[in-house]
Design a protein around this nucleic acid. Structure first.
Lengths: 244, 244
DNA sequence: TATCGCTCGGATACAACGTACACTCAAGGT
DNA sequence: ACCTTGAGTGTACGTTGTATCCGAGCGATA
């Protein structure tokens, strides 16, 4: 009774959100806010997610959500956590798990294009569901002779590859959508004025060959898969070296 | 003389910037604006790069820069172009070139932390200097039996890995700086409240082992190098397969 | 040389954003 | 019955990106 509530320090975001609601009056809740924000971002883009429109969509006052999140970064954090809940990585041999890890994150990032527009310190901040996926990936590499440091390196490499590559994919897909072009040639024409002029300077011989000789753009998925196998090959080599 | 200025279509950013200045009256110029913007971003962070502060720093009116760039995205584009000029990738065998490509981009991203905060469609947009570096990397893979598509896949994989991984590094470094902590333990303590609570839920066993058993954070550079060699190994395997 | 017109840069203005602050009002323990 | 607590409201401020209009200086032309 004399106890001072165990700790009067600042309560963390996740702790606060899991604390049971005291009064039945509240209409808003963490998950509800997160879900609505994700819905808005999916439909209208990340820049449409303003505290005001979010509140309006929840039939609440502009400042309503501030009871649950400390600011926009917190809002982004619970949005990220929300979508990472979509991942369902099965157990299995490491290569299968890591591939699934990569592919499912890729799919998630395509379903929610706004993910790659988030400020990086948000993407970086570990959320419960994000951490769960990392843990799954790490676990798949356990007991193969790699130490924890090496396991983490492998997972971070895959994650880094996925984020970087899919970020590019998404940006290109966005361009495609913005220019309202459907065919690949139209896109090429769309980002053409810029590219066309730069290629005309004749300063990029190999890139130019790539643009004009190669098909230049198969499905981005093909690029991704090829790159991913590359990375996995690298990890396999490291595992062999550790085990052999 | 009857010629209508060769083309009355919209002039692209780079074309306009390279057009010689007609009058000596202009105090502002593309490179000048870019340099100042980069300087501000380096010192005060990307969010300090406001059209207004930029103008103030140039002793100009708020709207002055709009004569040279079409909006903030264009400003970001010339900033990216500016810093990509710092790359100097030497010739040599492919592995050395790609490693240099990766390492120099990493260094550049660390010198200019704001790079990873840019909206992705900006990072995506090819600028002259950026294209030059890609061309260098592509050229190093020429004549090894890979077709252009495979060469591009390799380069994009490296680039994707670098962007993703260094993005994480930078975000962590930023956290480190924000919490004003110098030692690694202090950082751990800083992002602790969040992480501590999540680990206490006992839902991430392997990650927990990583945090508590492993050193948990060697120099990020070690992580990066290890991951990079991984990726390069993957590319080597592909080259062998194509050649053998 | 006088003038025209192009372009550089300035001034003003506006809508939209994040969020600080003070408030109302219903629940629930006493 | 009161009074404390915390959920949601209303209002307001400062800052941002940018549209628009304006004057003024220089190069080209007559």
């Amino acid at each position: 009774m004399a106890e001072k509530a165990t700790e009067s320090g600042p309560v963390t975001l996740w702790e606060r959100l899991e604390r049971p609601t005291r009064t039945p009056r509240q209409r808003l809740s963490g998950p509800l806010i997160a879900a609505k924000a994700v819905e808005i971002a999916d439909e209208k883009g990340l820049c449409a997610v303003t505290m005001r429109t979010l509140a309006a969509e929840l039939d609440a006052a502009p400042m309503a959500a501030y009871r649950f999140v400390d600011g926009k970064d917190d809002l982004f954090a619970i949005m990220v956590n929300e979508v990472y809940a979509e991942l369902a990585i099965p157990e299995g041999p490491w290569r299968k798990v890591l591939r699934e890890y990569a592919v499912q994150i890729r799919d998630m990032m395509h379903r929610h294009r706004w993910l790659s527009e988030l400020p990086p310190h948000v993407t970086m901040m570990p959320t419960p569901n994000h951490l769960a996926s990392v843990d799954r990936a790490l676990a798949s590499l356990d007991g193969l002779g790699l130490d924890l440091e090496a396991m983490m390196t492998a997972v971070r490499t895959v994650a880094g590859f996925v984020h970087g590559t899919v970020g590019d994919e998404v940006a290109l897909a966005e361009l495609q959508q913005v220019s309202m072009a459907k065919s690949r040639e139209e896109v090429r024409e769309a980002l053409g004025p810029q590219l066309q002029w730069m290629l005309a300077t004749e300063r990029y011989p190999v890139y130019e060959r790539y643009i004009y000789e190669s098909g230049c753009a198969e499905e981005p998925r093909v690029h991704f898969d090829a790159g991913l196998e590359l990375v996995l090959d690298g990890i396999a080599a490291r595992i062999d070296r550790a085990a052999g």
